[in-house]
Structure formats: structure tokens, C-alpha cells
């Protein structure tokens, strides 16, 4: 059976995360929410601790905390706090609380490194189902709201004038982000989720002339980085998660040397 091979499972997991992260990452870049991914991801560590304490699955714990965190930030940002301040406060306090919470779990020695950097090579069939299920959900959600999300990103008042509430769209984005973080935690780990969101999307910018092609290109770059990164990690015996992100960063670096097509023409 094909799925018996751990490398194939790992590759499928990486590609699944890359697909979910691509369209989402584009919005994160366009809306200048780069640290939103970081903050949500850091909060997920607290989720991991809670899930171990209450014996839930790591996915559930991470999802709940990531959602709470994302909603809190969204709500507070409407009260006039600057987004970067808010994200800084939330990200670091969530991480600190998470680490403290972990220390209370006596008897359970958990491998925090595994959650910080992920362990893509240990992905099981059940994990794979969660990852692809989550990725499909995220892609469907973003695809369904695409036009409205894009309008709300460009200008909130345009959204109101067209008869819909941009804050509701922001909520869809927030939920999708939380789901992605929860899904990706096992694969690339907390510290690298934000990278998988931002790096492929940023790399795709130079090649794209429309929002849609940017999202697709980001998916291709992310997927290819996962495949190439895993291969390289296997050959060179390097940690898999970071190697995947290294690949994506190399693509970004290469593409940045070329003049942007979008600005180059006419």
C-alpha cells in the first residue's frame, strides 16, 4: 500500500498544508497581518499544553486556542489598539502561558521540540485525514468568500456599499487561519507555520498579475517546496520541517532577483 511509506505520507501532508496555506497566506500578506500567523501559531502551544492536560487530541486543543486567540485579536483591534501592538502582546503572552502550562504537566515529558518544529515524518494515516480534511475546508471557505474577502481587503467601505459586512468576512479569514494552524502544527510545527503562510505567497508576488494567479502560484511554490524539502532532508539527513521552509525561502530569494513582471510591463 502506497500510504505505508512514511515518506509518501510526509509528502502528502506537506503538500496538503501548502495548499491550505497558499490562498490564506496571500490575504495575510495583502492585509499586512504577517504577525497574525505568528501570534495564532504561538497561541497554539498553549493549546497543545491544554490538550495534553485534558487528554484531548492535539488538533482539538490547538484549534480551540487558536480560534480564541484569533477572535480576541479581531475584537480588540476594533477597539482602537494598533494591530502590531496587539499581536505582539498576544503572541508572547500566549507562548509564555503555554510554556508555563506545560511545566505543570508533571509526569508527562512532552517533546516540546516536536511541536515547535513539527515532525512531519511521524504523520499517521489519521493525521493525513485531518490535514487534508482541514485543507479542503480552508480552501473551500476561502474560495466561497473569495470575491468578498478581496473587496474587504481592498477597502472596507466598498464592501459596505456593496451590501455586505467586511467584519464578517474578516471572521471567515480568522477561522480559516485558526484551522490551518491547528492542521499544520504536527507537520511543520508552530514556529514554521507562519513561514509556510507568508514565504510562498511573498515569492508568488513577483510572478503574478492577478490575485487569483498569485494564490495558485503560491500553492505551487509551497507544494514544490514541501516535495523538494522532504527529499533534501532525506538525502542530507536534516530536520524535515525547517528544510521545507528553507526551500520556500530559496524560491523567494531567486524570484526576488528578477524584476517584477507586474511592474515590468508597460
Amino acid at each position: 500500500m502506497m500510504l505505508d511509506d512514511f515518506m509518501i505520507r510526509a509528502t502528502l501532508a506537506g503538500v496538503g498544508v501548502a495548499f491550505a496555506a497558499a490562498p490564506l497566506g496571500c490575504f495575510v500578506v495583502w492585509r499586512r497581518m504577517a504577525y497574525f500567523g505568528d501570534a495564532t501559531a504561538h497561541a497554539a502551544i498553549l493549546g497543545v499544553a491544554l490538550s495534553l492536560a485534558f487528554q484531548m487530541s492535539v488538533f482539538t486543543g490547538a484549534l480551540v486556542v487558536a480560534l480564541l486567540m484569533a477572535l480576541t485579536v479581531t475584537m480588540l483591534s476594533r477597539r482602537g489598539y494598533a494591530m502590531d501592538t496587539l499581536l505582539g502582546v498576544m503572541a508572547h503572552s500566549a507562548l509564555a502561558f503555554g510554556l508555563v502550562a506545560v511545566s505543570f504537566l508533571s509526569g508527562v515529558r512532552i517533546d516540546l521540540m516536536a511541536y515547535l518544529f513539527g515532525d512531519i515524518l511521524a504523520v499517521s494515516r489519521a493525521d493525513l485525514a485531518v490535514i487534508w480534511g482541514g485543507a479542503a475546508l480552508v480552501v473551500a471557505l476561502i474560495g466561497w468568500r473569495w470575491s468578498r474577502l478581496l473587496t474587504a481587503t481592498l477597502n472596507e467601505d466598498l464592501a459596505y456599499a456593496s451590501g455586505f459586512d467586511p467584519r464578517k468576512e474578516q471572521l471567515f479569514l480568522t477561522v480559516a487561519l485558526a484551522v490551518t494552524v491547528a492542521v499544520a502544527i504536527k507537520v511543520v510545527g508552530v514556529l514554521l507555520i507562519a513561514a509556510m503562510l507568508i514565504v510562498p505567497a511573498a515569492a508568488a508576488r513577483n510572478l503574478a498579475r492577478s490575485p487569483e494567479t498569485m494564490a495558485l502560484t503560491a500553492a505551487v511554490i509551497g507544494g514544490a517546496s514541501a516535495v523538494a524539502g522532504l527529499r533534501a532532508a532525506y538525502v542530507a539527513d536534516t530536520p524535515a520541517g525547517p528544510t521545507i521552509v528553507c526551500m520556500a525561502s530559496l524560491v523567494f530569494a531567486c524570484l526576488s532577483f528578477f524584476p517584477s513582471r507586474a511592474q515590468g510591463r508597460r
Binding site: 499586512r32 481592498l154 466598498l158 503574478a208 498579475r209 494567479t213 498569485m214 507586474a262
Partner: peptide, 10 residues
């Protein structure tokens, strides 16, 4: 209307 330079749109 500010369009972020990272958002390519014709």
C-alpha cells in the same frame, strides 16, 4: 483607496 503593493490586480 490604498492598494497594497503586494496585491497584483489589473
Amino acid at each position: 483607496l490604498h492598494i497594497d503593493p503586494t496585491l497584483p490586480i489589473s
